[in-house]
Design a protein around this nucleic acid. Structure first.
Lengths: 384, 384
DNA sequence: GTTCCGTATGAATCCTAAC
DNA sequence: GGTTAGGATTCATACGGAA
């Protein structure tokens, strides 16, 4: 029994090693920590297939501002009028979007994912194309801006949010989602699809001679949450529209690898300086709360084997509607039902499934506890 | 000069009279206050061109759900499995959407507008098609649900919002927007593009024999805000997916005319009864319905995310009896205790509970401060 | 009458490693 | 590739009955 388990463990370890060795070779071939100069579609074509864990993209928004916009006091609004944000028509925007998304999908590992941020000017086109290309949307996230620019003319609702789409490479992908870290970050409540974050301003906003270095610099807090939620340390993050390098700065801080594409030399210079100044966090600060899914597994039999629970011990659910007794091999018996704590739990309830760890209770040191409490004790005792 | 001006005035008056007379005739020809039975595209084809002021549409979302879903307590989640939400492919969904949107555009007056609500499953396709057909998007509005259904399996972010698109018939349309009404409704602040409203439940939710009459009934508060913002009294509002008639009920209460299309006889019966019982506008009811605002809540993780507190930072209690260090996900570590500021605070003291905001302190700008002081700073930075 | 507690439920693309 | 067994997972409301 023990020998078999060890053999299985060894096989798994070998598989993991092989696959991580292949990944390491691929990773070596990548221009990690570099900003690739020029058109992002061309630069992406030069990168190897299935090599990227996560893509974050903040593409041009296709803004169609009719002429200049003035505040009520007559002062001029510094709108997005840079030449890279002009497209003749939706058709041209779609062609451009389809091209870079196609390359993005080629670059992603099978279990990779993408984030794209946009506003109502472009996000519907991006979302529909993502679906058309085979990406699988996991969530749309609303970045609710704490301090948006008001609508000066009073002609519409204040445009107070932007939309992000999170999508895996395909429907079947086993994407990364650090559920527990997100729940911890949100004071023990599930993280919702609407995120309240301030816009990028103050000292974080990069200025050259008092002028914004980039018109749409994203707050680091936004990238922080994205990477914490959907990457692991060491993962490779690609940003095809790198701008002033928010993605690179946060990736470095969080111990993720990064690659950027950018055509504007001005932005590249700003980004390189900024990322060099970003300090990586040390490893202990980087550790996040693990989900039980990724924690080491304990079989119920181990608790019996270790003597923590004696064969013959009585188990019962919280309301003592059902009873069961523990047997020497770690199975349990309730009436004529025999099997694992999970199987018998679901059988007596007539439920399709059951977590025996939380369903069954036990008297331990004069208290009634769920089995899960004893598992925690076992884990503590086993850890060196 | 004066004579000329008078003549001009007279001509304008005649034109206005003619146009309003024409409008009155068109309006007479409309099936106002009626639910048109059958397929919405066929019924819309029978209505006159340029006769409608506003369209509100809550089309099928094309959810594409998998198997059954159970809550952690084992109970069953009642999903939307109705036949009307099933489509074979995105292509089929697009065809359906293009057809009803085309009719919708024909029916709208030149200065008319449309609202469509959806989720990430369908809204990107709807938005792109609106743009393709010549509609002009004015805002995308996020309905932030105060009480959404959680993500039971911990696999994604809680799907806590739905998206509405508000678009005029064309770029040049002089659409209706009651800016003052919205600002008044929002305590003299511009109404933003994110609206916090509870989902439809309690006495408002229509049930037959204890079972919900419609799986996706929308809250009246949502329609109230839409009609108040973008129609005038007497305007004609068309709802092609009438369901249980929320649009009709609210239109009646607000003194707007309405027309609905619906295929399902069960829904029609419910809607007719409901609208007949709808009372005329009651100002006090309106105020309470609209006054639900979001209370600012700050999670400790937000301070970490925003860069206000760096991972690795040392925390200590007022008497420096215990120390802890901040981790990247907003959890803290004190010895082998890991968890939230509150949980670790109570654990180290052996106390049943602890307010981590006042218990833990930090060195900030050369001073020792409770975390709560930094929370106040964060709130100041984030407030409008 | 009031408070407390248990239960029900809402547009949801809701598990995964090992064999 | 599919199948199976192990086992992980929930927030805000509303309501009814008990205390």
């Amino acid at each position: 029994m023990v020998a078999l388990a060890k053999e299985r463990q060894a096989k798994t370890a070998v598989r993991a090693l092989r696959s991580s060795a292949a990944a390491a070779v691929t990773k070596l071939a990548l221009p990690l920590g570099q900003i690739l100069r020029g058109d992002c579609i061309e630069r992406m074509r030069e990168l190897p297939t299935a090599s990227i864990d996560l893509i974050f993209a903040d593409p041009p928004y296709n803004l169609q501002l009719g002429g200049d916009l003035a505040r009520p006091d007559g002062s001029h609004v510094d709108a997005v009028t840079d030449h890279w944000d002009k497209f003749d028509s939706f058709e041209r925007y779609d062609t451009f979007t389809r091209e870079w998304l196609t390359e993005a999908r080629r670059l992603l590992k099978p279990d990779g994912a993408i984030w794209v941020i946009g506003s109502y000017h472009n996000i519907f086109r991006v979302g529909a194309l993502l679906q058309d290309l085979g990406f699988w949307i996991l969530n749309d996230i609303v970045w609710r801006k704490a301090n948006p620019m008001p609508n000066f003319k009073g002609t519409r609702f204040t445009n107070a949010h932007e939309t992000l789409i999170w999508a895996s490479r395909s429907e079947k992908a086993k994407y990364t989602f650090n559920y527990r870290a997100m729940k911890t970050l949100n004071d023990e409540l599930q993280m919702r699809s609407d995120w309240v974050l301030p816009i990028c301003g103050g000292p974080e906003r990069i200025r050259k001679d008092g002028v914004k270095a980039h018109p749409t610099q994203k707050p680091e807090a936004l990238l922080y949450r994205i990477m914490l939620a959907t990457t692991n340390p060491g993962d490779v993050v690609l940003d095809p529209f790198f701008g002033t390098g928010t993605t690179g700065a946060v990736a470095r801080r969080l111990g993720r690898e990064w690659i950027g594409c950018e055509r504007e030399e001005d932005y590249i210079a700003v980004a390189e300086e900024r990322i060099a100044a970003a300090l990586p966090l040390d490893e202990s600060a980087l550790t996040t709360m693990m989900s039980k899914r990724s924690a080491p597994r304990v079989a119920f039999g181990q608790l019996v084997e270790s003597g923590m629970i004696a064969p013959g011990t009585a188990l019962f659910d919280r309301k003592r509607r059902w009873n069961a007794s523990v047997r020497a091999d770690g199975s349990i018996a309730a009436g004529d039902q025999l099997g694992s704590i999970h199987g018998v739990g679901s059988a007596v309830q007539g439920a399709p499934s059951c977590n025996g760890w939380t369903f069954w209770h036990i008297e331990h040191e004069g208290e009634v506890k769920p089995l899960d409490a004893l598992r925690q004790l076992y884990l503590l005792a086993v850890e060196d």
